[in-house]
Write a protein that binds this DNA or RNA. Structure first.
Length: 327
DNA sequence: AAACCGATCAACCGCGACAAT
DNA sequence: CATTGTCGCGGTTGATCGGTT
């Protein structure tokens, strides 16, 4: 089955990095005879290499039309767009990027673009949002406990990649969690929380009146629960939410926080459309936790490209979630 | 100064596709 | 049709380098 390896560890065949002398031999031979017949080329050119190694060296490094240097924004955008369509078809992608080799693109993807997409919450395999609700809650919690860290306008702001629905669910879950914890963080940080809940409203200018159940096919829908939390809370019970939160009032009088949190997760999974990213088999394993505090603290020059790339992954569902009365 | 660590990228390896015989 | 040989692709490795401790 198949063929015998081209480079069968024959004695005398060199491996490893190419020397300038070897490069010159290969270049001179190909300039004279042209590429092709890679199996016989090294013998004819006087190289102690296998044909495969020669072909690789030529196509990936010595070819005169190879374009060296940093990838431009346009090239990077092209790579991402093509990858979303073609997947790991590096040669097909390279065919659309003059002067770039498949190996170069593959390396650049794995060392730069892939990491950037992960940092942006985009699964580099599926090109779909990869938001971990629980991690999001951790981020928000960290923001509340460390206001100096809080730059949510930038975090979720004008170039946000995060589905605003999802963001608000995460924020809500966090707030509910904090409320449940009786940490006092909510009452201590009303401005920050308002910032969390309103930051997307600011950026989108257009804000639908409420988060309607028609947008969600979720367990919450069966409870007739809308996510509009603009009504007043039930001060007498810190673990309950006033029924008026849930829209048409067909919900139980006391909707426990635990149930709401469960439903939030269900909403999240349904909104994502392809199951939870917590368990999606297509998600890249071993990846950096999305939007972890460390990642934000370590913003670097590459963040410029985060902004640049973000337009390709924007969502279009601006919503607000007024929780002012909930505080 | 040395050790360590992560990032980068050239090069290798195995395999599938396909052409030639 | 089966076998063999070549090419090219995609995944992976490992050497090197720069930054950090």
């Amino acid at each position: 089955m198949g063929r015998a390896p081209c480079c069968d560890n024959k004695s005398g065949l060199k491996k490893g990095p190419w020397t300038p002398e070897e490069d010159n031999l290969l270049i001179n031979y190909i300039q004279t005879h042209g590429p092709g017949n890679w199996r016989n080329l090294p013998k004819n050119a006087g190289l102690q290499r296998c044909g495969k190694s020669c072909r690789l060296r030529w196509t990936n490094y010595l070819r005169p039309d190879i374009r060296r240097g940093r990838f431009s924004f346009e090239e990077e955008e092209t790579i991402i767009q093509l990858h979303s369509v073609l997947g790991n078809k590096w040669s097909a992608i390279a065919a659309r990027l003059p002067g770039r080799t498949d190996n170069e693109i593959k390396n650049y993807w794995n060392t730069h673009i892939r990491k950037r997409l992960l940092r942006m919450g985009i699964d580099p395999v599926t090109h779909a949002p990869r938001l971990d609700l629980l991690d999001m809650s951790n981020v928000l919690r960290t923001a509340l406990t460390n206001p100096a860290f809080l730059n949510l306008q930038g975090l979720f702001g004008a170039q946000s990649l995060v589905n605003p629905e999802l963001l608000k669910l995460a924020a809500t879950a966090t707030l509910l969690s904090l409320k449940n914890d009786n940490t006092g963080l909510i009452s201590q940080n009303p401005q920050q929380i308002n910032g969390i809940m309103n930051c997307h409203q600011v950026q989108n200018q257009v804000v639908p009146p409420e988060f309607t159940t028609s947008q969600l096919q979720t367990p919450i829908q069966s409870n007739n629960m809308a996510m509009n939390m603009s009504s007043s809370s039930s001060p007498e019970n810190s673990n309950s939410i006033n029924p008026s939160y849930f829209g048409d009032g067909l919900v139980p009088q006391q909707y426990q926080v635990d149930n709401l949190q469960q439903n939030l997760e269900s909403v999240y999974q349904n909104m994502m459309g392809y199951g939870s990213v917590l368990s999606t088999p297509l998600s890249t394993p071993g990846t950096t936790t999305l939007n972890s505090p460390a990642n934000f603290a370590n913003s670097s020059a590459e963040e410029e490209r985060d902004t640049y790339c973000s337009d390709m992954f924007k969502f279009e569902i601006p919503e607000s979630l007024d929780i002012s009365d909930f505080l």
